[in-house]
Design a protein around this nucleic acid. Structure first.
Lengths: 304, 304
DNA sequence: GAATATTGTGAATATCATTCATAATTCATG
DNA sequence: CATGAATTATGAATGATATTCACAATATTC
């Protein structure tokens, strides 16, 4: 019998492209999904996926069920939102601090959607640089901090968002363009173009270059597009999330390479106080962010 | 976590009005539904039903989930129809014989819906009187016989549709109008108005009057409205399904009374050959009929 | 107020989803 | 083409949890 659980996994499967990945996303084992699929196929007497070498592709019936799943899950979500609103009008505010500059790119559409679903909730983006963003939570100066920090602290709850790869961005004719991936030493003679934040906030420096005692020149600018412009015009190289530069790379504006053999990966968390974490609209915000990012952003995987 | 199963029971609950009835409909015990409800209410932290004396009424959140359930189940059904069509274009015919005259009333809308969902299937109503309709199945003269017969026969499968009460219909000023229910003897001096079919086909005669050796005068006519007209103008009494006369009774055109202390109940079955029973569109037809009748017809309950 | 209907609940049971362990398969690579 | 890494499939064991059972509590009807 078809259940919501099956719909969930079908969506995950459609978006992840492999059973194992999909399993991670719905917090089950690969085996569980395999069994679920088998049960579904037995029940309807049709193959839902076709193994195309490594990856799995949905068959036509599978596609049909995925579209069903998408609409159904959407309806379930709005119904559940209505439900929490019925319980108590959830007036409130949600003030967000971004530790990571690039996050603006994906956060905007999410905020737009949120405003539609929760018009009663005042949404605020606390901008500007903060030396210790998590302290703002305790001081009740903000409600949600989005960043890669997840050190346990009393009173603070971390909500894993997603995991992404940071790539080195270089001009198309760069001397290192032949390499599959860059080592720390490769950055020695380069100018590093970054956002104007302290070194500790830049993953590449903190986790790769500093341990290797390499200190390249730095040049800073505020906007992602500005960074890319500087890179394209050979003023230096940058390190940016793969989803932030995908379009520019596809277009041939710049090229991107791995950093280190297995890549430089970063986790993103939403941090709140325990109290805020319980607010229905906050939970909805985080859940929506997670879901939309997995669906829309390239190369994004679940945290750990 | 919300599952399709919960949606099913919510719909059943909304339509049945009591937990026990709803349980019958989804083929579970009352206890199971009680637990399900409790789990749902715990999960969302809201009461879904409010006990209003005997019957249960859905709360506002409950209502919201029922509307969700209705749309979701509708989408699931069309998706499943699409699925079976994807497997193999199900061209075919569905010829229906009606053993019961009144059934026209509810069958028409069902047939209309069916034509929409399965335009490739030719739908046929085999009309006229047949002495032994079930024999037509074996002879492949028809595909589906709808009647109250369910004696086991080799090669024939019975699909329970629903159970309904047959009421005595009388003019508003009838001498027996004060009685709560009519005994067999009450019919002795009456003229019985029926459809033009043999006595064995008329439940009241076969199951009540004949055993009591009572043989009232009979007068026949083809249409339900004609029967009601005759009754209203004091030409006799009739025995008809409660759902077929509800409107006329509510309007004060005629009155209706139980037959016997616990009423005269009748079961309706769809009979097919085992082969036909496996055809997806036949299964869909029967399922739709069942569902729609439970939802739209008054006083209809599951078979046994 | 007894008899009947229905609901709620904890414990027992049964069912079924999930995991575990492992074999089979595919793909990249030296 | 052998090897290893990564994936999927599958049967058996496990675990979770939905359902039933048994019964108390409550409401309803005559």
């Amino acid at each position: 019998m078809l259940e919501v659980r099956h719909l969930r996994t079908l969506i995950a499967l459609a978006e992840a492209g492999t059973v194992s990945r999909a399993a991670e996303r719905v917090h089950l084992t690969q085996s569980a999904l395999s069994h679920q699929l088998k049960a579904l196929e037995a029940h309807y007497g049709v193959a839902m996926v076709r193994r195309h070498g490594q990856s799995v592709k949905l068959t036509e019936p599978g596609q049909r069920l995925v579209t069903l799943a998408r609409t159904v899950m959407g309806e379930v979500r709005t119904a559940e939102r209505d439900l929490t609103k019925l319980v108590r009008k959830p007036a409130g505010t949600l003030r967000i601090v971004l530790e990571c500059h690039t996050c603006f790119d994906w956060l905007m559409p999410i905020m737009d959607a949120f405003r539609k679903h929760w018009p009663e909730v005042e949404l605020d983006l606390v901008s500007g640089f903060h030396p210790n963003p998590l302290a703002l939570l305790a001081d009740n100066k903000t409600d949600l901090v989005i960043g890669s920090e997840n050190k346990p602290r009393r009173g603070i709850v971390y909500h894993p968002l997603f995991r992404f790869e940071v790539l080195a961005v270089m001009p198309t004719d760069h001397r290192l363009k032949a390499k599959r991936y860059l080592a720390a030493s490769d950055f020695a003679k380069e100018t590093l173009i970054t956002y104007p934040v302290p070194e500790e906030r830049i993953d590449l420096i903190r986790r790769v270059l500093k341990p290797a005692k390499i200190h390249p020149r730095r040049r800073t600018t505020e906007l992602t597009v500005a960074i890319l412009q500087l890179v394209a015009s050979r003023r230096g190289v940058a390190a940016l999330p793969n989803w932030g530069i995908k379009n520019y790379v596809d277009y041939g504006y710049v090229i991107a390479r791995r950093i280190g053999k297995s890549g430089l990966w970063s986790n993103l968390y939403g941090a709140t106080t325990g109290e805020v974490a319980r607010l229905p609209f906050v939970r909805d915000f985080l859940e929506t962010a997670r879901r939309e990012c997995f669906a829309k952003l390239d190369g994004v995987v679940p945290v750990q």
